[in-house]
Design a protein around this nucleic acid. Sequence first.
DNA 1: ATGGGAATGTAGCACCTATTACAAGGATGA
DNA 2: TCATCCTTGTAATAGGTGCTACATTCCCAT
Lengths: 183, 183
Amino acid sequence: MADRQAQREKVIQALADHLLANGLGQTSLRQLAAACDTSDRMLLYYFTDKTEIMTTVLGRVTEHFSVVLDQALPAQEMAPHDLLLKATALIRTPAMRPTMRLWLDMVAAAAREEPPFPAIAKSLLHQLMHWIEVRLEGPSGDAKRQRAAFLLAVIDGIAMFDMKGGVAEADAAEAALTNIAML
Amino acid sequence: MADRQAQREKVIQALADHLLANGLGQTSLRQLAAACDTSDRMLLYYFTDKTEIMTTVLGRVTEHFSVVLDQALPAQEMAPHDLLLKATALIRTPAMRPTMRLWLDMVAAAAREEPPFPAIAKSLLHQLMHWIEVRLEGPSGDAKRQRAAFLLAVIDGIAMFDMKGGVAEADAAEAALTNIAML
DNA sequence: ATGGGAATGTAGCACCTATTACAAGGATGA
DNA sequence: TCATCCTTGTAATAGGTGCTACATTCCCAT
């Protein structure tokens, strides 16, 4: 019998992949179990709760998300405009789509005050804000935080177009970015 | 017995309110029935399907949404900057919050390719684009469409902050709007 | 080899889901 | 008055949900 801790680790990875591929819609214990080739019984042996499963797996996903973002764009200050273009292009990458879709699912659940999603969403939001602030040139302070929030809104808004089936609108908004100036 | 058509109409209204108040999370037939003071049995007498219930009610909600938007801001051309400020303030109104939350739920469901949401989301997206283009000064064409898409991305992105529990970030992004210039 | 504990399977619980079959109420036209 | 049809209730279907009780198998230390 492979020892419990190792098995649990494999399950977390498999479930992370499953959530990325299928979103928060197909998450009954039986479906999750099928996705990682075990039984619902065993899932509740590795974890105490369905809640613990979800928080653990989603925690893993968001960790990975942060790492990917950090590696994709060096943590080096740049002009707002450059950051806007690069971050938007990065986040609209096909490889990023599953992650963004899952992120959207989580935000929706958070907006509906469904634990544990509000906490997860807020935490990831702060991480994203930090990711931007680190890469944004200029002195820290309220002004920088405001610019960062604006950039994140734009990037997120454009990514959201893709989720709505509005690829054309996303392309259009991205094209418009070249004509934006931030004072 | 109040005639079927009239009763059906009342039910649609009550369910629209219920969805606005509770999102797409609490939508079992029994819950819907309780929300409009009838029985699940009767819901399936007024409508053929749960799907028909949802499409009808959500259609009503989006219709109402469009009307509210049209009435809140006169259909008159203005500078991009003005439109951006006014639309953002409008959409962040507390009264708008239920609608935005439901809209978010629908986008999430659409992203997960769950019928009938992709169609609904795309349609509403086009309505919003049109709403902006009508109010945006300057000649029509690709350039205008791009600016409109950008504006919608910003507005939506800021509204999304509120959904994530990031009121502070939404405020910050809104404050940053005064320093944005569109060429 | 054997006892003990960890790992896993089987079966079931009580509850929820959309939907339907059947029957009964109630009004309405003949 | 009676037959008919529109409306509504009751109850059941077949399946899904998170979770648990019990039993079994398996490995490892003694």
